[in-house]
């Protein structure tokens, strides 16, 4: 398989994630879409690593760090969603408007 094929899959994942972040009402699905975007980035990093610099695992090391950061982000994000639900009784993004003038 060529590099372009992997990048195409990564681009598709990214665009789907972008659409999810912009168009979903539920904060939880926004977080899921962000996970999709992280995965698109990881896929691109590993594909570039394999095709451009085989034998040097720097791209994979980067992907590993992204996975660790994504795990931290998911844990804190979901804790925030739980705190929001406890205070507002909703998980819909349009209801979080305390800062609206």
């Amino acid at each position: 398989m060529t590099l372009q094929a992997y990048l195409l899959v990564g681009a598709a994942l990214f665009v789907i994630g972008l659409f999810g972040v912009l168009a979903r009402r539920n904060v939880l699905t926004v977080l899921m879409s962000i996970e999709l975007i992280f995965n698109a980035a990881n896929l691109n990093l590993v594909a570039f690593n394999r095709f451009a610099h085989p034998g040097q695992p720097w791209g994979q090391g980067f992907a590993l760090f992204i996975i660790a950061i994504a795990a931290a982000e998911a844990v804190v994000g979901l804790a925030l969603v739980l705190a929001l639900y406890r205070n507002f009784r909703t998980v819909l993004t349009e209801n979080f408007d305390l800062l609206k003038g």
Binding site: M32, N42, L43, V46, R50
Partner: peptide, 23 residues
Amino acid sequence: ALFLVLSLTGVAGFFAMLGADFL
């Protein structure tokens, strides 16, 4: 959320194809 599991497993398959066994 359940579909997300499937999609992430697919990405794992790509990692295997790219020779990133640890990832």
